[in-house]
Every structure is written in structure tokens, then in C-alpha cells.
């Protein structure tokens, strides 16, 4: 473990935490452009978070300590997840401790605490949101694991940095299996982050909401942390996608500092493109009924398993 590796690690965490609201702001900007309305500034998520931090917190009288610690746990889990996803360099000291499967577990921990906290105050909406979130989660998780398994099979390791390193060094070929899993991953990303076919991030107080319903009881700094964690989750998912399907441009191996400096603008370009793509998907698709969500996620699972089978059969 040397200084550069530690530097890379620190930089990744800082960039992820700092840029996550900006990424969210960029997606909102693109959506507004596509829907022909004037958008709030891309810095709006920062302003919201700052505003919330300056308010006094109100906590439901009958809620337990779990309700108060959950935002910190969720935010911590997301930050830790950001630490083990190779978004800029592959020599990350933290990744020796956790591979891609542990990453899925980390994301699941955050989800469980969020759902528990939503049920904690005992309001109908919170329970409803928590149940729906768990329904989406238990369907999306196998699909995500399958996606990771395909990439792991191709590069014969479950460590995310090693996967991206393998894919950057491999001669570029057509991988039908990776194409299938990329589609599956996009669907999982949409479902897990409460984006449009499953949940509408732009509405507040709607009967079909999932993510917002879980946060209804939160206010002030707790809400700020939850919102920030949600933005960070989206950022993390985007970075997992880059690591698996678009690893080109990250500083592979024992990289020199200049490769790392190059990796930052490359990541920015990828995020800009991914954000506009996400906004496009969200604009052209309609929100599904909650009862159709299992169908959507079954399709994602199907795509991932097809990728796996095609890889096993064709070796590509």
C-alpha cells in the first residue's frame, strides 16, 4: 500500500460524496430540457441539502432511536460503497476487504435500515413505502447479482477493480452476454433508485410513491442525509455500470498520478452522458403500475440470466 493508492482512495470517496448531488442536478436539468420547461440550476440539490441542514429537526414522539440513527447508517453505507467501486483508479486499498458481492450486501444493508426506519414511526405511508421498497429490492437484487456474476465469469474474479482492469486490457470484442447484462443493469438501476418506470422521483405526496413515502417522517438534517444518500446511491450505481461495461479511461494498475488526473475528466464525461441517457429513458417511458413492477424486474432478471447462459454456451 503506497501513498498514491491511498490518495486514489481518498479522492474517490471525496469526489463521489461531493459530486453526487451535482449528478442528480444534471439529470434534473436534462429532464427539464427534454420536457421543454425551464430547469432549476444544476446546483439546486446542494441548496436543498444546505437548507435542510440549517433547520431544526422534528422527530415523531413515538419513534425509537433507530429512526434517528438510520440516516447516518444509510449515508455511511453509501459512502463505504463509493469507496469500493473503482470509479477512477483500480488500486484501491479498501477493495481488498470487499468484493462485488459484499457491495450488493452493503447496498442491501442501507435498504433494510431505511425500510425499518420508515416502519418505525408507525405511519401508514411509511409502512406502505417500506413494503414496496422491499418488494422492489428482493426482485432487483438477484438481477444485480446475476449481472455481477456474468462480468465475474468473463474475468474470473468477483473483485470489481480486477473486473474493470481485465476488461480494459482485453482486446475489444463483441460480447453479446455483456450487452444483455448491460440492459439488465440499466433496468435494475432505474428500479433501485426510484426512477421513472418504477417510481417517480419528481412527485411528492402521491399514492404510488415508494422512496418519498419512506422519507415522509424525516425532516432537517436527517432528511438532508437521506436525500444525499439517495443521490450518492444513484452515483454509485452509475459508477458500478462504468466499472462493468465502460471501464475505459480509468487508471488501471499501479497508475501514475497523471493517469489519475486524466481519469477525472473521463469520469465527468461518462457521468454527463449517462445522466442525459437516464433523463432520456425517463422522459420517453411512462410510470408502471406498482403491480407491473415485478414484471419489469423479472425481465431484468431474465436479461441477466440470458447473458449468463449465452456466455456459458458461446464463451463470449
Amino acid at each position: 500500500m503506497n501513498v498514491i493508492a491511498l490518495l486514489t482512495q481518498g479522492l474517490e470517496i471525496i469526489v463521489a460524496v461531493a459530486a453526487a448531488p451535482l449528478f442528480l442536478g444534471w439529470i434534473n436539468q436534462c429532464r427539464a430540457w427534454l420536457q421543454n420547461r425551464s430547469a432549476p440550476s444544476v446546483l439546486q440539490p446542494y441548496r436543498t441539502i444546505q437548507k435542510l441542514f440549517n433547520k431544526d429537526a422534528v422527530i415523531a414522539a413515538n419513534s425509537s432511536a433507530l429512526f434517528r440513527v438510520a440516516p447516518y447508517i444509510v449515508f455511511g453505507a453509501m459512502t463505504l460503497a463509493a469507496a469500493i467501486i473503482p470509479s477512477m483508479g483500480t488500486r484501491l486499498p479498501f477493495t481488498a476487504a470487499a468484493d462485488a458481492i459484499a457491495l450488493v450486501g452493503l447496498l442491501a444493508t442501507a435498504r433494510v435500515f431505511m425500510a425499518l426506519a420508515a416502519m418505525d414511526s408507525g405511519t401508514a405511508f411509511g409502512t406502505l413505502g417500506a413494503r414496496r421498497e422491499m418488494m422492489v429490492g428482493f426482485l432487483a437484487e438477484p438481477a444485480l447479482l446475476m449481472v455481477i456474476f456474468v462480468a465475474s465469469l468473463i474475468s474470473a474474479t468477483t473483485s470489481l477493480p480486477a473486473i474493470s482492469e481485465h476488461l480494459t486490457t482485453e482486446a475489444i470484442g463483441l460480447y453479446p452476454s455483456l450487452a444483455f447484462t448491460a440492459v439488465a443493469f440499466t433496468m435494475v438501476l432505474l428500479a433501485e433508485n426510484g426512477r421513472i418506470p418504477i417510481d417517480n422521483p419528481a412527485t411528492h405526496l402521491e399514492l404510488t410513491m415508494i422512496h418519498e413515502a419512506m422519507l415522509l417522517e424525516y425532516s432537517a438534517r436527517h432528511l438532508a442525509l437521506m436525500e444525499w444518500a439517495a443521490a450518492l446511491k444513484l452515483f454509485n450505481y452509475a459508477c458500478i455500470g462504468f466499472a462493468l461495461f465502460l471501464p475505459w479511461g480509468i487508471a488501471a494498475g499501479a497508475a501514475a498520478p497523471n493517469a489519475l488526473l486524466l481519469a477525472i475528466p473521463v469520469l465527468a464525461v461518462k457521468l454527463v452522458l449517462a445522466g442525459s441517457g437516464l433523463a432520456l429513458i425517463e422522459t420517453v417511458s411512462a410510470k408502471l403500475r406498482v403491480f407491473r413492477a415485478p414484471e419489469f424486474l423479472a425481465t431484468a432478471f431474465l436479461f441477466a440470466v440470458l447473458g449468463l447462459l449465452v456466455h456459458l454456451l458461446l464463451g463470449a
Partner: peptide, 24 residues
């Protein structure tokens, strides 16, 4: 894994697409 020639790769993509369309 040994790299396949491009036409065989394309054929594999076609085969995968056929399977996908069957599911569709």
C-alpha cells in the same frame, strides 16, 4: 479466452438476438 474471428462473433450476436426475440 481465444479471440474469435469477427464473422463468428457477429454470428454469436445474431444467435443471442434470436434467443432474445423468442423471449420478447
Amino acid at each position: 479466452m481465444a479471440p474469435l474471428s469477427w464473422d463468428l462473433q457477429l454470428l454469436n450476436v445474431c444467435a443471442a438476438l434470436l434467443l432474445l426475440l423468442a423471449f420478447a
